[in-house]
């Protein structure tokens, strides 16, 4: 049995991951904004076989509450083996261009709150010389594009922060996994036309996340072909890239 904290536990990808963990009999501490939704997913994991399910509401933007959330998890489970950070929003890029306040909000939710939680988890795990931090970043963080550079900047900040954190925690035996999904068919992307071949289901991505965590991978693109796609996107010279409408 393993004890995992899941932040953003009612997001579609986190839910798919937790279902698989429930089947394995994990003990889960679920954190999300809505108690009603947390209750619904908690019951589901109980039926599927989770050893224990605990819930806690949290607005991740309220960084002051992060420590007490962690303490509640420790109290509920005794020890923590890992934390999966899966919350996020998809900003309205146009609105972020028009208003710095909107851009700040999005960066706060998608990056600063993640950094706050990772800092907490890193220090706790470093003390116990074990633990696993897995964070859902995005392929969007690999290069800034005009269509979503605020989201991309936030995810890029997360990816780079995790690189450094992984480097720091290596000698403590703490693992850090950066998860970079491409397009996933979730409520966050409800406004998109999802008929193309690049779209993956939350279940597919969840299976990849669990594989990556089991194998203690450092960085994983999901599905795998995004590794190639982003390799190409990253290698386009800026002089050309700035002229593209991506």
């Amino acid at each position: 049995m393993k004890n995992w904290i899941v932040i953003g536990a009612t997001s579609a990808i986190a839910e798919s991951v937790c279902r698989l963990w429930a089947v394995r009999g994990y003990n889960l501490f679920l954190v999300g904004r809505s108690q009603d939704k947390l209750d619904m997913v908690a019951k589901d994991y109980q039926v599927r076989g989770a050893a224990g399910v605990h819930t806690q509401t949290l607005d991740v933007k309220d960084h002051g509450q992060h420590q007490s959330c962690w303490d509640a998890a420790m109290k509920a489970m005794g020890t923590v083996d890992g934390i999966l950070i899966a919350h996020g929003t998809l900003p309205d890029q146009k609105q972020c261009e028009a208003s710095y306040d909107s851009a700040f909000d999005e960066i706060n939710v998608n990056a600063l709150s993640v950094i706050s939680l990772c800092t907490l988890a890193a220090n706790e795990f470093e003390k116990q010389n074990s633990g696993h931090i897995a964070v859902i970043s995005s392929v969007a963080g690999d290069r800034g594009r005009q269509s979503n550079y605020v989201y991309g900047a936030a995810k890029g900040m997360v990816s780079i922060f995790l690189q450094g954190l992984r480097n720091r925690l290596f000698k403590s035996g703490v693992y850090v996994t950066t998860i970079k999904p491409g397009f996933v068919d979730t409520p966050m992307t409800a406004e998109f036309d999802k008929s193309g071949p690049l779209w993956a289901s939350p279940d597919q991505v969840a299976a990849g996340i669990i594989r990556a965590i089991d194998k203690k991978r450092s960085v994983v693109y999901l599905p795998w072909f995004w590794l190639g796609v982003m390799l190409i996107i990253r290698s386009i010279p800026e002089i050309v890239f700035k002229r593209l409408s991506l």
Binding site: A12, M40, V41, K43, D44, V47, R48
Partner: peptide
Amino acid sequence: RFMNRFIEF
């Protein structure tokens, strides 16, 4: 298709 949670068994 995504409203697929168990409630009680």
